[in-house]
Design a protein around this nucleic acid. Sequence first.
DNA 1: TTCACTGCAAATGATTTGCAAAGCA
DNA 2: TGCTTTGCAAATCATTTGCAGTGAA
Lengths: 136, 136
Amino acid sequence: MFHGRPYSHILERLRGAGLRPTRQRLALAKILFENGDRHISAEQLHTEALHAGIRVSLATVYNALHQFTTAGLLREIVVDSGRSYFDTNISVHHHFFHERSGYLEDIPGEIMIGNLPEAPAGTAITRVDVIVRVAA
Amino acid sequence: MFHGRPYSHILERLRGAGLRPTRQRLALAKILFENGDRHISAEQLHTEALHAGIRVSLATVYNALHQFTTAGLLREIVVDSGRSYFDTNISVHHHFFHERSGYLEDIPGEIMIGNLPEAPAGTAITRVDVIVRVAA
DNA sequence: TTCACTGCAAATGATTTGCAAAGCA
DNA sequence: TGCTTTGCAAATCATTTGCAGTGAA
């Protein structure tokens, strides 16, 4: 979208995460991070990459998604058994899940959670997920 | 556990759900509903059934779990991609998910959720899931 | 008898893995 | 050059399906 401002910011992002900026990682990161907030599956990302003329294998897409997730650039969301979504919005927020279509959508605004009990002994909370399931 | 009170209540439960009380459905329901609140996977239930001396195929276990879920006797919980848990507690409640072990546990007490926005146009909320992920 | 239910084995679909070839530092 | 990363195809894992045989009403 921005001519004359190629990959530098994405390049930084990958480098900052300790990931070598290979051709395929750069291209995938571009699709992921230059199109606003997205909820995307591995298969979808692979398809988009091929459409964009990027030669990349599905295995590499899986690798990249997991590496990005581990590096904190993505967040994995599980709502539906047998399919993972990756969210490019890594800030604290929650989701609407459309049960019929499998469509995942950010919940606008902030949700307040009260009365949350302490984590079981010897554990600490790593994340709280709220999934509001909706149907037509 | 209760001698002299064999399957009558379970039988009723299945009949009430419009499910023919076959030998395998009765046996599986017995394992599921006579041991308090449980979070169980298909594979686990199958193993337990075999241990209890019940000849039942894994396919039938899957069928039964889905039929029970559709009938409202169970609730399916997805926390972990690639594995489904079924919860015998169908009242409104939420879960701790132990990320390392995959263990799922009820959150005691009630969680208050405020500021929940309206469901997207044309949809209605079917359920709200709160999953508190914890790690050691 | 009839139609639902079950078991088996094969099919499916998402994800992972092994390993040789190719690519970045 | 040396260590990563990639691609491919095969392997895996949970789950589903097709279909012939079995069982409940």
